[in-house]
């Protein structure tokens, strides 16, 4: 089975950029779902569980911080792997998000930065391994 991913960002162009990097990671991808804000993202997750969520912070309707807080309070979704992809510059807010188990990628990111964080979080692949070895093949994975 492939990795089902949810990308939450109010910019459709940014969502496409992130999805493009996801496809470059060499991971066996299943369905890639999109949402334009945190509330929409939670709605998508109610309808279909995913293995990984990439979430922006500054969004209308419901921001990423609130979305992650609600995720962690929901027993069915609390263990979801989350990567925050944001311009957030406050170390205090970044630490709060990390305490909630989210990895953090700062915008602007290079495709390599995002790829490394995704591989590290999902596969436990370190920078050295990622640099020196090819990404695991789909047959090696079981999501």
């Amino acid at each position: 089975m492939g990795l089902n991913v949810l990308v939450v960002d109010d910019s459709a162009v940014m969502r496409k950029m992130i999805i493009k990097v996801l496809r470059l990671c060499g991971l066996p991808l299943g369905e890639i779902l999109e949402a334009g804000d945190g509330a929409e993202g939670l709605g998508v997750l109610d309808a279909q569980p995913v293995d990984l969520a990439l979430v922006d912070i500054n969004m209308p309707v419901m921001d990423g911080e609130e979305m992650i807080r609600r995720l962690r309070e929901d027993p069915d979704k609390s263990a979801l792997a989350v990567i925050v992809v944001s311009t957030e510059g406050s170390q205090a807010r970044v630490h709060l998000l990390q305490e909630k188990g989210a990895a953090f990628v700062h915008k602007p990111f290079s495709p390599e930065d995002l790829k490394k964080t995704i591989l590290s979080l999902v596969m436990g692949v370190s920078d050295e391994q990622e640099d020196g070895e090819s990404a695991p093949q789909s047959g090696d994975l079981d999501f």
Partner: peptide, 10 residues
Amino acid sequence: GEISNVICGN
């Protein structure tokens, strides 16, 4: 819009 948002955030 995203470019302006990222410059601002940085």
